[in-house]
């Protein structure tokens, strides 16, 4: 679904590349969490996937980027938008209409779809993210979590096969963040949408993920099963903020008090701990 080969990218007038020799293959239906310290290239990589880089940002790019069988370099952003949707940190920056319905309609009208199809897609997308009732509400009256769901609906209505989320919960309270994670997991599970999510709140994101990719200084540092990656050497992963239960599990596993691999949630850890106690 996503194929990146030997990608090197440098922003205009930047001295050194933001992405260095990135190779990444993501299959249909995967839920990949992309982690790494600030400035490691996560957002830059996201921008490559719908052609914002290089079509909008310019700069020097070499290598291959293919998304949904389309070569990103030779297709305009407008065409790519129907295959890969981006959702950003702050939903306020993405919503601008007087009603949620108008916001979702905007992208669809730009595709030139007939009105009946537009209405059908709006209803479908709002139901899919669980805010069907808010169709006529003004975006600025919604809670942060509802706004982010509206922003997701705008992207979902374009029926992309890949959705890329760049820190979608940063501005949200924990309860709303959890609800956004569950919504994304549902889109992945029930609609088969391939998900790539940049997220610092690993404790919330990883339990839904099938795979984890860690970036550092423009390259890929680790790629694989989240439990296995987090069970490994902690030192090189310091910058990403290992979830506290995973780190606790790793420390106890080192002393042979409970077996690896590490847990990704408190529930999972508690269950393993009880098992160890009863053995």
């Amino acid at each position: 679904m996503i194929e990146i080969e030997e990608l090197v990218y440098t922003y205009p007038e930047a001295g050194k590349p933001a992405l260095k020799d990135v190779n990444l293959q993501i299959r249909k239906g995967e839920f990949v969490v992309l982690a790494g310290p600030s400035g490691c290239g996560k957002t830059t990589l996201c921008r490559c996937l719908n052609g914002l880089i290089p079509h909008f940002y310019g700069g020097d790019l070499s290598g291959k980027i293919q998304v949904a069988q389309l070569d990103v370099l030779s297709h305009p952003t407008r065409e790519l938008a129907q295959h890969v949707g981006l959702v950003f940190q702050n939903p306020e920056n993405q919503l601008f209409s007087l009603t949620v319905e108008r916001d979702v309609a905007f992208g669809l009208e730009n595709l030139g779809l007939p009105p009946a199809e537009i209405r059908r897609r709006i209803d479908w997308a709002l139901e899919a993210v669980g805010i069907g009732k808010l169709k006529d509400s003004a975006p600025h009256e919604l809670s942060g979590g509802e706004q982010q769901k509206a922003a997701i609906a705008c992207v979902l209505a374009m029926r992309p096969s890949v959705m890329v989320f760049d820190e979608p919960t940063s501005f949200l309270d924990p309860a709303s963040a959890k609800s956004i994670m569950e919504t994304v997991a549902k889109l992945n599970r029930e609609l088969g949408i391939t998900v790539l999510m940049v997220e610092h709140r690993l404790e919330m994101a990883l339990k839904h993920a099938s795979r984890m990719v860690v970036m550092e200084k423009g390259g890929i540092l680790a790629d694989g099963d989240p439990r296995e990656i987090l069970s490994g050497a902690a030192e090189k992963l310091r910058g990403i903020g290992i979830p506290k239960v995973a780190e606790l599990h790793r420390l106890l596993a080192e002393k042979n008090l409970i077996p690896p691999p590490v847990s990704l949630s408190p529930e999972e850890f508690s269950a393993k701990l009880m098992e160890a106690l009863n053995r």
Partner: peptide, 26 residues
């Protein structure tokens, strides 16, 4: 609309075994 800190989630049920509840650091 918060969530319990991860380690509190772990230690809360352990409090009946005599562990403290308010554990925040790894």
């Amino acid at each position: 609309a918060l969530t319990l800190p991860q380690l509190v989630e772990v230690f809360d049920p352990l409090s009946r075994l005599g562990f403290p509840k308010a554990v925040f650091g790894v």
